[in-house]
Amino acid sequence: MRAPKSHVRVALATTLLAGAALTGSAAAAGFAHADSSRAGDANIAPVGRADLHPEASPLFSVARRLPKVSADQVLRLAESQVGVRENGYGGGTKFHDWYMNSPRARETVARDGGKVTDYRNAAWCDMFVSWVGDKLGIRPAMGWDAYTVSHASWFKENKRWGTHPVRGAVVFFGWDGGKLLHNIDHVGFVIKDNGDGTIQTVEGNTGNGKVEIRTRPTADVVGYGYPVYTA
């Protein structure tokens, strides 16, 4: 969900490469530009949509340097957390503890204001998504944040944003029906497209503060971020 007010002062045009390992040194490492050679792309699982222009995304170059991870592995880990719940309203999960102790927390505090301890009681749906990517070693190909709008903006800036539900995609919801990034309120992972105007998802900070598998109408979806999976 959206972060507290101290964490929402961010320009949607901000382009942040995920992870401290990429911040500041991305261009020098060659991660800031698409690889013009497609020779290495054979090991990268496509999302099945030609209109995503994968060759234009710097994430393909990044992904080849990461552990080989599939959408199924991401969903297995996410679904293994079903039932984990907060100890009190908006806080008390391992996802909060992990995020507050991550370098990303210091980066987002510097960006949005406030202090790291503010995350202790913050909405944690995006911390859950980010935790999954971190545990599997693919956060530079999935992004990590506590603020859903900024995370969605990161996918868009990296040319991995679209409107098609794909297994393993990061799905961003807006409860007021708007389709602009600033309408985003919540985030999770797509398990499957049910083909009837709904999707099955796994989400954190839902159902009275826990991880659950949900069925959601696609009318509530603002868009999808497509991590680059390599297995």
Rank of each mutant, 00 (worst) to 15 (best):
Y224R: 05
N205D: 10
F189N: 02
V187L: 02
E212G: 12
F189G: 04
R216I: 10
G197H: 01
G174T: 05
I191L: 04
V221A: 15
D220E: 12
T215C: 08
G207A: 15
I184Y: 01
E203P: 11
G178C: 02
F173K: 04
G168K: 03
G195V: 06
I199K: 10
G168D: 09
V222C: 14
H182V: 12
I199N: 05
H186I: 01
L180G: 12
P217E: 02
T201R: 03
T215A: 10
G197K: 01
D220C: 07
G168H: 03
V166T: 14
D196S: 12
K192P: 12
K210G: 13
E203Q: 11
W175M: 04
H186T: 02
N183F: 01
V222Q: 03
D176R: 14
P217Y: 10
I213A: 04
E203V: 03
N208P: 12
D176F: 13
K192H: 09
N194G: 06
T206V: 13
G177C: 07
G177D: 09
T218V: 15
T215H: 09
T198E: 01
V166I: 12
H182G: 06
V190S: 07
K192R: 14
E203A: 08
V211T: 07
G223W: 10
N205W: 03
V171I: 10
D185W: 02
G178L: 00
G207Y: 03
D196M: 09
V222G: 11
T218K: 13
E212A: 15
D185E: 05
V166D: 07
I184D: 02
I191K: 13
I191G: 08
G223P: 04
T215L: 11
